[in-house]
């Protein structure tokens, strides 16, 4: 059964009087435990597709279904609640809050749960341990390297134990070695913890870590490797 299913999805943006067609009649099916790399030139619609799957944007037409939930039928508040439980986000520039320590940054998504303070702290430290940064728990983002910050961001993404990780160019701001560490970590999360990962990347070497690679061009899926795709 499809875990993530996009059916005849169209996404247009209005720029003044001009309509920009970002995604055109796109169909995509992914299964639980997949690790998908989305590639393509700038402006091809990769991030838009990621946003639709992550429930932070709505399609102009078509359906987006994730883990049995039809995102098009949800209100803003319902989507927010759904995201907090289902999706972990990893961004290119980490997007950690600079005034909070690593531990506090990781704890943030747990403020949306009913966990007690001590339990939230324990879960945050467990997540940091998973990304091998427990010893940096009390450091603020400015005191960490880029790779370390991205690992904190991954810890934040997994702390609420979501089924899906959505990663928007997670290695785009890192050197090769740090990038390899992050990709290895994502592979571990996919292999050992069964997380479904959708990763946007420009880097073919990064894409090699994925089980499936899709290419987007001008809003259309143009080729695929190993994935069950129809465009």
């Amino acid at each position: 059964m499809a875990f993530i299913e996009l059916t005849r999805v169209v996404k247009n943006y209005e720029k003044g009087s001009e309509v920009v067609h970002v995604l055109q009649d796109l169909n995509l099916t992914l299964h639980e435990g997949d690790f998908l790399a989305l590639m393509g030139p700038s402006g091809s619609g990769k991030s838009t597709l990621l946003n639709l799957i992550g429930g932070i944007d709505q399609p102009t037409a078509g359906n987006v279904s994730v883990d049995g939930a039809n995102l098009g039928n949800m209100s803003g508040s319902q989507l927010a609640k759904w995201r907090s439980a289902t999706i972990g986000f990893v961004f290119q520039f980490y997007n950690l809050l600079p005034f909070l320590t690593a531990e506090r940054n990781v704890e943030l998504p747990l403020l949306l749960t009913n966990l007690r303070g001590s339990q939230r702290k324990e879960n945050a430290l467990t997540a940091l341990r998973t990304v091998s940064l427990e010893d940096r728990a009390k450091h603020k983002p400015g005191e960490l390297s880029g790779g370390q910050q991205q690992r904190v961001a991954i810890a934040r993404a997994i702390v609420a134990d979501p089924k899906i990780l959505v990663c928007d160019e997670p290695t785009g701001d890192l050197d090769r070695q740090s990038a390899q560490e992050i990709l290895a970590l994502l592979e571990t999360l996919n292999d050992r913890f069964g997380k479904t990962i959708i990763m946007v990347t420009h880097d073919p070497l990064a894409a090699e870590h994925a089980k499936t690679v899709l290419h987007l061009d001008k809003g259309v899926l143009v080729e695929s490797e190993q994935a069950e795709v129809s465009a």
């Binding site: 992550g54 932070i56 803003g76 508040s77 927010a80 609640k81 995201r83 907090s84 439980a85 986000f89 961004f91 997007n95 809050l97 943030l108 998504p109 403020l111 949306l112 934040r156």
Partner: peptide
């Protein structure tokens, strides 16, 4: 603004 976007992405609702 970007941080607010991140918090919304994580699941904090508008209100």
């Amino acid at each position: 603004i970007a941080e607010l976007g991140v918090l919304k992405t994580i699941g904090f609702n508008d209100y």
